[in-house]
Amino acid sequence: MRDGMGGGAPDFPPLLTGRAVAGEAPRAAAIRAAEAGADPGLILYDALAEDLHAAIVFAPDRPREEAAVMLPLAGVALQNALGSVAPPEVAVHLGWDGSVHVNGGRAGRIAMIAPASADDAAPDWLVVTLDLHFVPRDADGGMHPDETTLHAEGCGNLTPMPVLESYARHLLHWLHDWDTDGLSGLHREYSGLVWQLGEEVTLAGRSGHFLGLDERLGALVKADGTTHLLPLSLMMEQP
């Protein structure tokens, strides 16, 4: 049984295992576990927090530039998960940099971390983190006008652990789709969810007009008459 904040042990699908962390951020715990050789599919999560904080360990079998697709893949999985439980008027969009936007306000972030490696070599491990805000930080939102939370956007019945369970199931679905059918399905789904597509943006330090995505979901940004390709590997952080 879960408490009012969504505590308790979540039920994950096969191939994924969970471990609650105490006194340590899931990101730091996942990096430490990955460096120690943890099995892929390990999910570290904070079961007691009012917001959702989780991190998943992976063992990539693809080169670094391809493995970076995990950032939009995890984003689409989260959007699908929220779409299955949130009211229909709740719109979720995904920043190319990993930001998560709900009804236009920033409500969280997905990040990926991996040790240094050549672009044509698979990293030894990869950690994907998810931080999603459920509870408002202040009563009227005035201190953070560009940010929002799920509860502020009409999702007051949602708690972190059920959302994490749904996210894990959708994540496995998209991993299977990528493995069996390539990136066409993910590209199609993600293209309809990208935040600020067609607008003036600053991505990975490059400012310009966000034209679209290449076949590997890299960002095409036009500045001063030149179109620049920003590969997703630019968003891969190091521990």
Score class of each variant (00 low, 15 high):
residue 2 R to Y: 14
residue 3 D to F: 13
residue 4 G to M: 13
residue 6 G to P: 10
residue 9 A to M: 15
residue 11 D to K: 09
residue 14 P to E: 10
residue 16 L to Q: 01
residue 22 A to Q: 07
residue 24 E to W: 12
residue 24 E to C: 14
residue 25 A to G: 04
residue 26 P to M: 06
residue 30 A to N: 01
residue 33 A to Q: 04
residue 38 A to Y: 03
residue 38 A to N: 03
residue 41 G to L: 04
residue 45 Y to Q: 10
residue 50 E to C: 09
residue 52 L to W: 05
residue 56 I to M: 09
residue 61 D to Y: 10
residue 63 P to D: 12
residue 64 R to W: 12
residue 69 V to T: 15
residue 73 L to C: 08
residue 75 G to S: 15
residue 80 N to Q: 15
residue 81 A to K: 01
residue 81 A to P: 03
residue 81 A to S: 01
residue 85 V to L: 11
residue 86 A to V: 02
residue 86 A to S: 14
residue 89 E to A: 03
residue 91 A to D: 15
residue 95 G to S: 10
residue 109 R to V: 07
residue 111 A to W: 06
residue 112 M to R: 13
residue 115 P to M: 10
residue 115 P to T: 03
residue 119 D to A: 15
residue 131 D to L: 02
residue 133 H to S: 14
residue 134 F to S: 02
residue 134 F to G: 04
residue 137 R to C: 10
residue 137 R to Q: 14
residue 138 D to M: 06
residue 141 G to H: 08
residue 146 D to F: 01
residue 148 T to F: 02
residue 149 T to L: 11
residue 154 G to P: 00
residue 156 G to C: 07
residue 158 L to H: 09
residue 160 P to S: 05
residue 161 M to P: 06
residue 162 P to A: 03
residue 163 V to Y: 01
residue 163 V to A: 00
residue 167 Y to F: 04
residue 171 L to R: 00
residue 172 L to F: 01
residue 179 D to G: 10
residue 182 G to D: 11
residue 183 L to G: 00
residue 186 L to C: 11
residue 186 L to R: 07
residue 186 L to Y: 08
residue 187 H to Q: 09
residue 200 E to N: 15
residue 201 V to S: 02
residue 202 T to C: 07
residue 205 G to K: 08
residue 211 L to C: 13
residue 213 L to P: 06
residue 213 L to R: 10
residue 218 G to Q: 07
residue 219 A to Q: 02
residue 221 V to P: 04
residue 223 A to D: 05
residue 223 A to S: 14
residue 224 D to C: 02
residue 227 T to Q: 13
residue 228 H to G: 05
